[in-house]
Simulated assay, not measured.
Amino acid sequence: METFASFRVGGQRVYGMVHLPEPDLNGIPRPAHGFPGVVILHGFTGDRSGDHRLLPLLSRHLADRGIASLRFDFRGSGESEGDFSEMTVSREVEDAVAGFGYFKDLPEIDPKRAMLLGFSMGGLVAALSAPKVNPHRLALWAPALPELWLRMLPGGHLPPAIMDQGGWPIGREFLLEMTRLDPLKAAGQYRGQARVFHGDADTAVPIEMGMRYAQALGCDTIAIPGGTHTFDSLETTEMLYKVTGEFLLGN
């Protein structure tokens, strides 16, 4: 079952989609204390659909295996309220914490098995959010590090106000904050089960970044052979869904 979700952060409305397993249709036992579930965080300039429907198809894959999920658009992205020029990682962490609280309070969800998954910059946000929400499990897809955005600075200097990045208005505060963020330190403070998934052909966010996250988390890195940053082949997407689902189910 798929239903629209909405919650407020800082007076602005955030929109998303909740996916719930349907035991009567796929033969999955109905848990006595609610379904395990995962909150999914999209990447930079992305939205809750992701490239080539990567995230809704993940949610449906998981629902068929008994795992609920929430996908939402960060403020300033997709259909959520706010302007992209206001976007900072700290604001996205606020959205992630609020979304996680909204999700685990749903009557269909087992709050003790609420999990977190972040893709690309969403992985950075997930790492910073994990010590705050203490998810049952933490999955990072191709997680990025701040140094990727610091390379955007013209001549190494901050722009006076808004920088036009391919039509996206990047605010000065977003770049200024990147110099202060330490997602690896935050990852090291998380004490739950974690796993990093990274395509070995990722040129946007090199797999070495995923390995640094895994080292901080004390967990494994699962390399997806031939996987690009957005896992843009049927074979790599299928493998990514399979190993992610197995991890979230505790296999």
Rank of each mutant, 00 (worst) to 15 (best):
G227W: 00
L153E: 02
V125Y: 04
G155E: 06
L54R: 12
L145N: 04
V205H: 06
E177R: 04
G37W: 02
D47W: 10
G16K: 07
A204E: 11
R91P: 08
L57P: 10
H136P: 06
G166C: 15
S120K: 08
R71C: 08
L58N: 04
L25A: 09
M87A: 09
M211R: 13
T236L: 10
L249H: 07
V243P: 08
A127P: 02
R172I: 04
S59C: 08
M163F: 06
R30S: 11
G188L: 11
T179F: 14
D95E: 04
I207E: 07
G34R: 05
V9Q: 03
A223D: 00
E79C: 06
L57N: 14
S90T: 13
A144E: 04
P160R: 07
P169G: 05
Q12H: 15
F4S: 15
N26H: 14
G82N: 01
N26W: 15
L106T: 00
F247R: 09
S69I: 11
V97N: 10
R13V: 14
D105Q: 09
A98T: 10
Q189E: 15
Q189V: 15
L184T: 03
E177F: 02
F103Q: 03
G78I: 08
I109C: 01
G82I: 06
F174M: 06
P31E: 00
Q189C: 13
L150E: 12
A214Y: 03
P154L: 05
G250H: 13
W141V: 05
R71D: 06
